[in-house]
Amino acid sequence: MSETIPDYITPEVKAIIGAEAPPITARHAVESSEVRRFHQALIDNAPRFWDPEASKRYGGPVAPMGFPVHVFRRTEEEPDPLAMMDQPDYDGVDRALRPGLPPVLVPLKRLMNGGYEYELFRHARPGEGIVLKSRYADIYQRNGRTGPIVFVVIEDSYETGAGEKLLRSTNTIILR
């Protein structure tokens, strides 16, 4: 029996390459307590995250550099991701990979984070809003020994609510 490798880059998937999300502001400003949980979970107690004396260069305590990447929490309007946990194939991850971008509708079950390229400018501080602009830079398929793999390349730009650049990233998500 011959096996045909499916092409997951359908016209519907092709149509979202280059799609840009409108600027999206995180629901709430950066909070000291979430910064604390974040740097403690990183096992990184650098004084710039908590000590006013040691953070003068930054204008006061700051969040770890990559913190803005994780501030786009579920809003009250969005469905509860845990509501689907009774489905045995549900992996807990929304296929809408960024707020404001359309989901990548590829029927591959496993999602892995392939890596990042970061350019870093400034830490976010408690009280500041975070604004994200995202774009699907590319979506493509490679057929490996273990089957088809779809790569989703996302460009993200993070700024403060006042328009100050925080960081830029290029993130590759792998679906297989």
């Binding site: 949980r37 974040f38 994780h70 992996d91 807990g92 999602l111």
Partner: peptide, 10 residues
């Protein structure tokens, strides 16, 4: 870490 960033990937 998963709880701090609200990542529910099983």
């Amino acid at each position: 870490w998963s709880a701090a960033m609200e990542n529910w990937h099983r």
